[in-house]
């Protein structure tokens, strides 16, 4: 514990600005992964433990596309699109076959998929870790705001992530299909009784979730190490976020993600050895006091 350092940090605008942007960066990238996870759970009541695999594949695809084309924008779009298709295929060919069975059967399938794709990545890209490197457009000196450091690439990431969050919220709240998805999350029987094609809907939700995870992987790739199995730690953290925010709630995931980001940002200064334990404790408390999460609705 180093509360003195924490107090000192809160007393300095530079420190607050820097650690807040750090927290936002950590949180918003996690949000993109968690958003898909929470959406899939909300509509299909499935915990997609293969979601980290989507993220990993997104990062690797972006790496290869950037290598081949030299365009980072193209790499990000390609990764998102590829993982959206992958998500649909995953739902159609694997998950859809065990609907109505024991939920643990879906878990078994996710496990098999994680095993398979960790090895496929090793087969295609090799066992060693890769780094994509910063795209040339972002090779600039950090910006200073009120004495705090904000790298331009991260400023861009925050903007893109917030835009995606807004688009997602808007899309779900305003468009017809978005409203159907929201309704399906609340009451799937009713949606299906209204004659809406739930088969297509489920595939669409998996596609959306997969696409978001793929985008997150691609957006994070320039600064992270790519290695087989890299999706695992991201899966755990996004899972915690969806549970705290409420399984099925996009707004909850956003707030929980930012909350955890900030906790990490300031936790590293105040109690560097105990941030994880604190996050788990928060998760347990939320589950006990409000099982459906801060923003979730009680499952029927």
């Amino acid at each position: 514990m180093d509360l003195e350092a924490l107090v000192a940090c809160f007393g300095s605008l530079a420190c607050v600005v820097t650690q807040t942007t750090s927290g936002l960066i950590v949180g918003l990238l996690l949000f993109l992964v968690a958003a898909g996870l929470t959406l899939i759970f909300g509509v299909l009541k499935i915990v997609n433990f293969a979601h980290g695999t989507f993220y990993m594949l997104g990062a690797y695809i972006a790496y290869s596309v950037l290598r081949a084309s030299g365009s980072y924008g193209l790499a990000v779009l390609a990764a998102g699109a590829a993982m959206a298709v992958f998500g649909v295929a995953f739902e159609r060919f694997l998950i859809a076959r065990v609907y109505g069975g024991n939920v643990l059967m879906q878990l078994l399938i996710c496990y098999a998929v994680v095993l398979i794709f960790d090895d496929l990545v090793k087969l295609v890209w090799g066992a060693d870790f890769h780094a994509m490197g910063m795209p040339d457009a972002f090779q600039r000196a950090p910006i200073f705001i009120a004495g705090g450091v904000v790298p331009p690439f991260y400023a861009g990431l925050i903007a893109v992530s917030l835009c995606l969050a807004a688009l997602l919220g808007l899309g779900l709240g305003v468009t017809r299909i978005g409203k159907i998805i929201t309704a399906a999350a609340d009451n799937p029987q009713m949606v299906s009784a209204l004659g809406i094609n739930t088969t297509a809907l489920f595939a669409l939700v998996f596609g959306l979730g997969g696409g978001l995870a793929g985008l997150a992987g691609a957006l994070a790739a320039p600064v992270r190490s790519l290695s087989p199995g890299m999706g695992f730690s991201v899966l755990i953290e996004s899972f915690i976020i969806t549970v705290i925010g409420g399984m099925g709630s996009i707004a909850g995931a956003l707030l929980a993600a930012i909350g955890i980001g900030l906790l990490r940002g300031f936790g590293t200064i105040g109690f560097p050895l105990f941030t994880d334990g604190l996050i788990y404790a928060a998760m347990i408390l939320v589950l006990l006091l409000r099982p459906s999460g801060l923003f979730g609705r009680e499952m029927v």
Partner: peptide, 20 residues
């Protein structure tokens, strides 16, 4: 060395083939 690939494949066969 790619035991995960094979093992995952066999588990998928079990899960999708038998469904229990």
């Amino acid at each position: 060395e790619y035991h995960g690939l094979v093992q995952g494949g066999v588990i998928l066969l079990f899960a999708l083939g038998l469904r229990r």
